[in-house]
């Protein structure tokens, strides 16, 4: 289906995408949409997700959830300024797919977020969590 003039092997693309990831991990988000090969590479090299954009939390964290599904090797997540709807909270994506995460940073949570419940679920679902950094949480 594709008419490729010249091809680069997957390990060459990995080297190139790695360089982009050094500058900005989140740039891999759109690169993962380019083709299946890029998705598998970004999946492999991507270890940290910074969810600092409002878009991540739109429609009950839809985008955040999809990012977790897309990047399977995440070791570190940072949720910044999350805004959750009435029904959804951060548990929804986390309990599904973040079993391997070792470090997590939560900051600037909105006041309404159900904290105790969230943290209890965090503890029970993210078994490998070694570091949890919370910044600017007004409810604690």
């Amino acid at each position: 289906m594709k008419h490729r003039r010249k091809e680069l092997s997957e390990d060459c693309w990995e080297l190139i995408l790695n360089r982009l990831a050094i500058d900005d991990f989140n740039s891999l988000q759109s690169l993962s949409l380019v083709c299946k090969q890029f998705l598998s590479i970004t999946d492999r090299i991507r270890l940290k997700l910074e969810a600092s954009d409002r878009l991540f939390y739109r429609n009950n964290c839809d985008a955040l959830f999809r990012s977790f599904q897309r990047f399977r090797n995440l070791k570190e997540i940072e949720l910044r300024d999350p805004i959750f709807g009435d029904k959804a909270d951060v548990n929804y994506p986390i309990q599904e797919s973040l079993l391997e995460v070792r470090s997590s940073i939560l900051s600037n949570f909105a006041l309404k977020t159900p904290f105790t419940k969230t943290f209890m679920k965090l503890g029970s679902t993210m078994k490998n969590l070694k570091i949890l950094r919370c910044c600017l949480l007004e409810c604690l």
Partner: peptide, 14 residues
Amino acid sequence: LCQNVAEMIKGKSV
């Protein structure tokens, strides 16, 4: 070379 291609890709749309 990889740095060069990375810079070419940077900021381009899908």
